[in-house]
Simulated assay, not measured.
Amino acid sequence: MATLPDLVELVRAPAALSVPGDVVAGAAAAGALDRRTPALAGASVLLYWAGMAANDWADRRLDAVERPERPIPSGRVSPGAAVGLAAGLTAAGLTVAAAAGGRRAAAVAVPLAAAVWGYDLRAKNTAAGPAVMAACRGLDVLLGASGGRLTRALPAALTVAAHTWTVTALSRREVTGTDPALPLGTLAGTAVVAASAATVARVPGRAAFRRRASTAPAPAGRRGRPATSGPDDAPASRWATLAALVPAGLAAWYAVGYGAAQARVVAEPSAGRVRAAVGAGITGLPALQGALTARGGARLLGLAVAAAAPLGRRLARKVSPT
């Protein structure tokens, strides 16, 4: 009978630290951060664990050759237990999503679950694999946005999806190694992703407000002269600058950590270096999610989301995220 540590390894439990940030970033972008967000994040984690268990079940014969230490080929978890756990976690994730977010959340969670299973059972080893996995993460962001305006969360969803594409493309070479062209391409993609996350989102209506403010008559100062900017404007300006620095700083942190791992693959494209880069992409994702959350206006929450990155790296030394 499988033990709890075996099941933890099967679902890569610590890697789930990279999941709640999807929902939080989507909610922040859509203006939907509320009491439903933690429950939707929990549903996302359940679906993630389901996907990991289903992945190992689908790959059990391949893992028997390439990764015999994994829970199923080593005999610590039976194939039936793994697929049963995957199905149960999927049902639980869908139930929690529907209970927390109603029909709108369910309308995103159902295709998300379908994409997860579709990747594991069909798309993983095809050319469509990276795109399908990217769609899973993009839908995960939109799950968080389901209580608000989904269109506002599309840039965040596409950014996370693009990052996921790079990680998935690298993961396909974890056993065999690769040539420098692949990590060079994913490294360029990482630079674009980081630049996108660092850009402060434009809040609808702000430009119109500025136009109205600029055309409004200035209040008169002494002797009828227009009043000039006073010292009270300086703190507001400094705060705006600081607010812009938070997503930029977190995006830079993400880019340096994940980018350095990919640069090492360029220098030595061995299987071990590729696995390390994939791990860096998984454990570094909270920094990107934090940048997107801060970009959506929730700066302190963005810092909290990003704090999961170093914790994930420490836990990855005990349970592999790949």
Rank of each mutant, 00 (worst) to 15 (best):
T186H: 11
Q262E: 04
G249D: 05
G144H: 04
L142F: 14
K124P: 12
A105S: 12
L154A: 14
P73Y: 09
A15V: 02
R67P: 15
P20L: 13
R211C: 03
S229R: 11
T241H: 07
R103V: 14
A43Y: 04
P310C: 05
A161M: 00
A220F: 09
P226L: 11
N55P: 10
Y254R: 00
G296Y: 01
R273A: 02
L288A: 09
R273T: 02
A114Y: 13
A25R: 13
D179W: 14
A98V: 15
G75R: 06
A198Q: 09
L85E: 00
A271V: 01
L47Y: 10
G272P: 09
L301G: 06
L300D: 08
G129N: 09
A82N: 00
A271W: 02
P219V: 06
P231M: 06
A98G: 15
V23Y: 07
W253L: 11
D233Q: 10
G102T: 08
G93E: 04
W239K: 07
A64T: 11
W117C: 03
N125K: 13
N125A: 15
D63S: 15
T228A: 08
G290T: 00
A287C: 04
L288S: 03
N55R: 11
A100F: 06
Q289T: 01
A298P: 09
L311H: 08
S146V: 03
V246S: 01
P155G: 10
A29T: 05
T90S: 08
T178K: 09
P235C: 05
A161C: 13
T293C: 02
P130G: 11
L245F: 00
A86I: 09
G144E: 08
A13R: 03
W165V: 14
R172C: 11
S196I: 15
L301E: 04
A107W: 04
T164C: 12
G189C: 15
A294R: 07
L112C: 15
R70K: 03
G272I: 09
G312I: 02
A16W: 06
A2Y: 07
V175E: 00
R76N: 06
S44R: 06
A248T: 06
G257V: 12
T178S: 14
A131E: 04
T199R: 12
T95W: 11
N125E: 15
L10W: 06
A106S: 05
P79W: 07
A50M: 06
S18K: 10
A134F: 00
A82T: 04
A127H: 08
A197V: 12
N55F: 04
D6N: 12
V65R: 10
A25E: 07
A271G: 05
V65L: 14
R149E: 12
G185M: 07
A16F: 12
L89Y: 08
A41C: 14
V256P: 00
D233L: 11
R238S: 13
L47E: 12
A260H: 05
W165M: 13
T241N: 01
A109V: 09
A114G: 13
A263W: 02
A309F: 05
G102I: 07
A198P: 09
P286T: 08
A50L: 11
A54N: 01
D179Y: 14
V246Y: 06
V193Y: 01
A201D: 07
L46D: 08
V256H: 09
L292K: 00
Q262K: 02
A280I: 05
V175W: 11
